[in-house]
Structure formats: structure tokens, C-alpha cells
């Protein structure tokens, strides 16, 4: 089964048809997607600003631990609404350059977070309470902020280019 065939099948499933054809079917996932993106992105931005010393309290680990639940809520809602939106028009999304770039950027964000956890975060005890984090952590934070700006740009670009594909 090719990717195209999977996409064709996806957009004819009941959820795919509902989102494509219903008046509210498309609008509600869009609203949920934007709102949850703001929650998830906003929580990540707060972590990044804490690493950069632009926010100084609470300690990084405390802030990060408090944000985990917010990130999960945002991530699950953004992911499920995003999947529904993809299913509604899968054959067009899968060849839309902006969508492919966005997917790549999301993978880079995950990679950046993994690098942070497995390298920089290991000696968090040493800088947890400091006003700002060591250089490695700051680089991760700047990369994260840059990638989020790119994700938003790519997301918006999907809306402007989908009809051409």
C-alpha cells in the first residue's frame, strides 16, 4: 500500500469525511488546533525564556515540572486536531511543501528536546537555581525558539498554498 493509497483511504474514513464536509467539522478542529498550539508553544517558550534568564523564577526544574501537564494537554489536543485536519484532505496535504516542511520542523523540535534531556539537563542540579543556564542550555533554548517561529510560519503557509496542490 503506497502512501498515496493510505491518504486516499484516510480521507474517506468517517472522521475524514466529517471534517471535510461538515460546516463545524472543519472549523472546530481548526479552533482547537490554534488554541492548543498556543498552550503547547507558550509552555515551551516559557521554558526557553527561563533558560535564557529572561524569566528568573521559579528554579528551572520547578518551572519545567509545573509545565509538563500543560504541555501534555496542549500536545494531545494539537496532535489529535492536527491529525483530523490532515485526514480531511490527506492527498493534498501529503504533497504540500509547507506541510512537509512543518512535519520536518516538528521532528527537529523533538530532536532538540531529546538533545536537551540527554546532554544539557544531566547536570541541572549545578545551575537549577542560577538566574540563567550554561551556554549549552542557552543554545538549545535559542534553537527551540527559532524552530517554533519556523513552525508557525510553515503552518500559516499551508493555509495559503493548499489550494494550489
Amino acid at each position: 500500500m503506497s502512501i498515496l493509497e493510505i491518504c486516499q483511504w484516510l480521507q474517506e474514513t468517517p472522521p475524514g469525511r466529517m471534517v471535510r464536509e461538515g460546516y463545524w467539522g472543519y472549523g472546530i478542529p481548526q479552533m482547537v488546533h490554534l488554541g492548543s498550539m498556543a498552550l503547547f508553544g507558550g509552555a515551551v517558550v516559557l521554558d526557553d525564556l527561563r533558560l535564557l534568564g529572561a524569566i528568573r523564577k521559579p528554579a528551572f526544574r520547578e518551572l519545567s515540572a509545573q509545565l509538563v501537564a500543560v504541555k501534555w494537554v496542549g500536545f494531545l489536543l494539537a496532535g489529535s486536531s492536527g491529525l483530523l485536519l490532515f485526514m480531511s484532505d490527506a492527498t493534498r496535504f501529503y504533497k504540500n511543501p509547507a506541510f512537509l516542511i512543518k512535519t520536518g520542523l516538528l521532528l527537529l523540535i523533538a530532536l532538540n528536546a531529546w538533545i536537551f534531556r540527554s546532554v544539557v539537563y544531566k547536570d541541572v542540579r549545578a545551575w537549577d537555581n542560577a538566574a540563567s543556564a550554561p551556554a549549552g542550555a542557552k543554545i538549545v533554548a535559542v534553537v527551540s525558539l527559532f524552530l517554533w517561529i519556523c513552525v508557525i510560519a510553515a503552518s500559516r503557509a499551508i493555509g495559503f498554498t493548499l489550494s494550489d496542490t
Binding site: A38, L39, G42, A43, L67, S155
Partner: peptide, 21 residues
């Protein structure tokens, strides 16, 4: 228009994200 709209969305993430927290 797309560039201004993108900047609008970035501002929304910063504002709504922090306000929600």
C-alpha cells in the same frame, strides 16, 4: 499579508501562552 499574519500568530503564542499560565 502572510508575513504579517505569521507575526500575529507568533505574538498570540507568546501572549496567550503566558496569560494562560
Amino acid at each position: 499579508y502572510p508575513v504579517v499574519e505569521t507575526l500575529h500568530m507568533i505574538s498570540i503564542v507568546v501572549l496567550v501562552g503566558t496569560a494562560a499560565m
